[in-house]
């Protein structure tokens, strides 16, 4: 009797264990089902590489949005990655563990601040600064990059710290014992040993930057055009979906879902690379 129920429990747990992966498949299925027919109908090349986005005329080229997303993400990386990795190195190598244990969760609070609040700060504080000092509309690719760069900091910092701390103490002690300074040890030993984890943290940050929507809508300006300078107003893939979803119908709505498909594929690829990098770190450990 007891053994039967024990088996039942195991079966039930196994079924629930598939909940996350089923949710993922369900998401993929429904987004693809809604978006893929459009891509076939409209043509992948035309969809990805035409600059003509005029839904009311039946023109659905997302090239400007792809370029904008890439630039904004790249900009966010330029802001967030060095700042994040530097912070992670400082906290894990130069600061006593007790201090790190206070500062790390504090920095993780950055991840808790809602993206609409970041967007709002961008509008109220950052955009005017850019407008007054560099010209342009203020709400721009540059503003989007800076805000996104800040938003990915907690991801980059906390995953980098974890992978740096996973470097065995003995490596470091060996280096220090040979008369190296902390900085020499960091750049000759620690960074090498935790490289794949740091890269994973940057890739995950990238995924977050590409996928971020609300903050970008608020600060990047949303004009559909291929940017020529960081001060231009741009519209990213995610912003395009969110802005037009509320009134889109028919082919237009399908085009937005097709944009979702592209986004989904990019994110899955980035996550797969990151998860390989993180696993590599575990194996080394």
């Amino acid at each position: 009797m007891k053994l039967i129920s024990e088996k039942g429990v195991k079966r039930l747990l196994m079924i629930t264990a598939f909940s996350a992966i089923s949710a993922l498949l369900l998401i993929a299925l429904f987004i693809i089902n809604e978006g893929l027919p459009f891509i076939f109908k409209y043509g992948l090349k035309e969809f990805l590489f035409s600059s003509d986005w005029q839904p009311h005329l039946g023109k659905f080229g997302i090239y400007p949005m792809i370029v904008a997303s890439l630039w904004v993400t790249l900009g966010a990386m330029l802001v967030g990655a060095p700042l994040g990795v530097a912070g992670a190195l400082f906290l894990s190598e130069y600061v006593p563990k007790s201090v790190m244990n206070i500062i790390k969760p504090t920095i993780e609070l950055l991840a808790a601040i809602p993206s609409v609040v970041y967007g709002f700060i961008g509008v109220m504080v950052l955009a005017p600064i850019i407008r007054d000092n560099f010209g342009g509309p203020g709400l721009s690719l540059l503003a989007g990059s800076i805000i996104l760069g800040i938003m990915i900091l907690p991801t980059v910092i906390s995953i980098s710290i974890d992978s740096i701390l996973a470097v065995p103490r003995s490596y470091r002690e060996g280096s220090l014992a040979l008369g190296a300074t902390t900085w020499q040890t960091i750049h000759m030993v620690t960074i090498k040993a935790s490289k794949s984890g740091i890269i994973a943290s940057i890739i995950l940050g990238m995924g977050r930057a590409i996928g971020e929507t609300m903050a970008v809508i608020m600060v990047a300006g949303n004009s559909v055009n291929i940017p020529h300078s960081p001060l231009d107003s741009v519209r990213t893939l995610t912003a395009n979906i969110a802005l037009e979803m509320s009134y889109a119908t028919g082919l237009h709505r399908q085009a937005l879902f097709a944009t979702g498909v592209i986004l989904f594929i990019v994110i899955i690829i980035l996550n797969s690379i990151a998860s390989v990098a993180i696993r590599k770190r575990m194996v080394k450990k």
Binding site: A20, I21, A23, L24, G211, T213, F264, I267, S275
Partner: peptide, 25 residues
């Protein structure tokens, strides 16, 4: 491994995709 990978991927999906999915589903 598949379950863990699926969980990691789900964690990385941007919220706008969740919005699209929730809307259509």
């Amino acid at each position: 491994k598949v379950i863990r990978f699926g969980t990691d991927c789900l964690a990385g999906i941007p919220s706008i995709i969740f919005g699209l999915f929730g809307y259509i589903f």
